[in-house]
Design a protein around this nucleic acid. Structure first.
Length: 409
RNA sequence: GGAGGGGUUCCCGAGUGGCCAAAGGGGGCAGACUGUAAAUCUGUUGUCUUUCGACUUCGAUGGUUCGAAUCCAUCUCCCUCCA
């Protein structure tokens, strides 16, 4: 029966901690208020945030109180960490809109009721800061020399770093101080790339309050090849079903590399370590079973059980034998559009499986397009009403991309 | 403020008057092999038509020329050095 710390640790989530012993201790004995910051720079959270959310959920389950900080103020400055060039500035409105979406998504993981968790926008205090006052109270505590030695600035120094970005660290540190003072928040968590920013906050608290605060960072979600995970050809893998359908989401995890399955199970599901161990024993083909579990569990967490089941069924119907999948992407077509016959290429375009006719021709030439499971041999093929079975037509591109066309009479 | 360098197709990056829809790499997509994996190999990767071909693209706008990504002018953005 270990503490959350052990749980997080054995799942391989923890990257660095500031004071291992003390953190273990407070996590075991106290109800700790901690925070994680989220940058509202996109209109949806993506898998990159997923791990942070898992951590928050784990912590909350262990009785601690999470604060999700929406970086409404800091987003107006831009975190230089890991960016090769300056981030584009965002308007208040954009940030606000994004922040609202975040809250919805976070609510699936964290219970915000009865003050069990808080969500705060740091714009609340950052936007009102008085420059001179800030410099006098906060700025004095930072040594430029030391900041420059931080890895995140070092790399940027070669390319150029604007003053505004340079200040990001101060603002994030100030957040921590503020939360420490007002909410007794003494632990900051974050991705491993946030390490130096977190240290900044801890330092600041020590100097201003003469009290100890703690920090802990988590593994960044990367593939075994060291690439950031969750990037797809269409961009990030979003948690918003409007931006990434549950089916695609499921498929992403269904298709992770062998080497990453166990890691993902540990990091992204609540399955017990015993169950994961069991799955980790699987070899070769059987690994697919583990991948199914992974895909199902992760989809369930993000989109709910119902969607996860649907996605799984859809996938099985398609990749297993026969069966009709109801929940893959589909497009409706009206009878009069099809009555006279419609060229495959036009149909493919309509259904957005291809973006140009040239692409379609190429795919067909290479044997990558199937209609109702029959390989399309020529781009001249015309599809008409007779091709629909029970008002449905199945189009497949390559091996994995399916699309259902529904005929509306 | 002064001096210099630069903006090329998804990304990086060649290309300095016709042979350029534009090398090479990366990435993407498809095919083979497989396990809805990885690795590998092959093809492909502006649009339209596919057969020749037509059209649009090299920061923006004008200009020179039979012909411009390549030359000129103006504008714009970025970077480096100096102050």
């Amino acid at each position: 029966m270990g503490s959350v710390f052990d749980t997080l640790n054995e799942r391989g989530m923890i990257a660095q901690v500031t004071h291992e012993e003390q953190i273990k201790e407070i996590l075991e004995k106290e109800k700790v208020t901690f925070y994680i910051g989220f940058d509202p720079t996109a209109d949806s959270l993506h898998v990159g945030h997923f791990l942070q959310m898992m951590v928050m959920a784990h912590m909350q389950r262990a009785g601690h109180r999470p604060i999700a900080i929406i970086g409404g103020g800091t987003a107006m400055v831009g975190d230089p960490t890991g960016k090769t060039d300056m981030r584009k500035m965002m308007t208040r409105e954009e940030i606000q809109r994004n922040a609202n979406k975040f809250k919805q998504q976070l609510s699936k993981f964290i219970d915000f009721s009865e003050g069990k968790a808080l969500m705060i926008d740091n714009a609340e205090w950052l936007l009102e800061l008085n420059y001179v006052k800030f410099l006098r109270e906060i700025g004095v505590h930072f040594s430029v020399n030391r900041m420059l030695t931080a890895e995140c600035f070092k790399s940027r120094l070669e390319r150029g770093l604007s003053f505004i970005e340079f200040n990001y660290m101060l603002m994030q540190s100030y957040d921590f101080l503020k939360l420490f003072q007002e909410y007794d928040c003494k632990l900051q968590l974050g991705g491993d790339d946030q390490w130096s920013n977190i240290l900044g906050g801890i330092d600041l608290i020590r100097r201003v309050e003469s009290k100890e605060a703690y920090g802990m960072t988590f593994t960044l979600l990367t593939t075994s090849e060291g690439k950031k995970m969750g990037k797809t050809e269409k961009g990030a893998l979003w948690l918003d079903p409007e931006k990434t359908s549950p089916y695609d989401f499921y498929q992403y995890w269904r298709n992770v590399h062998d080497a990453d399955v166990v890691k993902c199970l540990k990091l992204l599901t609540f399955l017990s370590m015993e169950e994961i161990e069991k799955l980790a024993q699987l070899k070769d083909q059987q690994i697919n079973e583990a991948k199914k579990v992974l895909a199902y569990e992760v989809t369930k967490l993000v989109h709910g059980e119902e969607e996860a089941v649907k996605a799984q069924q859809a996938a099985e119907a398609l990749f297993g034998q026969g069966g009709v999948a109801k929940d893959m992407p589909s497009t409706e077509v009206f009878l009069d559009e099809i009555a006279a016959g419609m060229n495959v290429l036009d149909l493919l375009i309509k259904v957005k499986l291809i973006s140009s006719k040239g692409e379609g021709r190429r795919l067909i030439k290479q044997g990558g397009i199937y209609v109702n499971d029959e390989r399309v041999e020529t781009a001249d093929l015309v599809v008409n009403e007779q091709d629909f079975k029970e008002n449905e037509l199945m189009i497949r591109k390559g091996k994995k991309v399916y699309h259902r066309v529904i005929l509306i009479k």
